[in-house]
Amino acid sequence: MTMTIEPRGSVASGFRALRHGKLILLLLLTTLALGWIAAMPLAAVFQTDFTGTLVGDHFVRNAPSLAPTDFVDFYEKKADAIHGARRTASAAGVLGVLIQVFFAGGIVVVLGRGPFSFGDFFEPARRNLWHNVKCLLLFLPALAVFVGGWFGGALAASHKLFEDAPPEAASRSVAWWATLLIGLLLFGALSLVYDFARAARRYAPAIGAFRAVRFAWRVLGGAWLRALALFGFWFVLGALVVGLGVGAVWLLPAVSPPAIALLVVLQLAALALRSAVRVGAWGSYLAFLDSRAGSALAALDARRTVAIPAPEPGLTFSRSTP
């Protein structure tokens, strides 16, 4: 396998990463599998009740309003199944997080380095799994402390400070937006540290979680603004994709079989686009890191590796100069 390092800007690299259709397909199929697992408790219920009574008829003809009276009675009658489906979806979501932690280990090694096989992908994914889990265990409490603490503290302070200010006072609005913005920035910063800590294994395959966090911190030093801009770009893009996808899927009346088929296609497209955004974001982050990783590692006094991992036997490397 020949690995190449290509010159690139961060955003452009992100879009270039979308050429890895197999990776996007992997994320999409994983999402679909998890989604179907969660939908299974309801599938049997829908089959029995919708085909056995006129409820399904009413739902479809009244979409997207779900024929409210039927919806209420169906929800009451099938509360157990719906509750089960919700819990399954929650569990599937948690499983999904663990799966993406696994995938991230492979993504950070292979992305932006030319074509790769699934073998090239899954080996580093397996190797980096525990490292990524440790990074997650550092990230989640930090999120609770810093972001949760920020929102909790800011809201409590606002309540006290603006007790006598009228509801429409500009100061209240400013405080609310500032709280939200800073909270988002805090989340973005923590998210970047988390992702970059995982990506440290791209440059130092044996680096531990705590050193990886220090690596991420050093990489971001002096470039926070640019990094947060990258984060914001992909975050907003992803949110837009989800929002538009959900809106389109929900609002499409879809009564005829062709319309229902179109609905399914829209669903797949929305999930595929969201998966692509995830891959694109990684591509951007790794391009951002590639130009800074060396100096950050040197500063950590970690054993410097070449910008690419040690070659497998039989592999050759070439490096194209800018």
């Binding site: 999402t31 989604g35 599938a43 829908f46 489906a85 599937a92 989800v242 969201r274």
Partner: peptide, 13 residues
Amino acid sequence: TSLAAFFSGVWTQ
């Protein structure tokens, strides 16, 4: 059923 699967997938994403 497809909608249920879709929204569950969105939740995962």
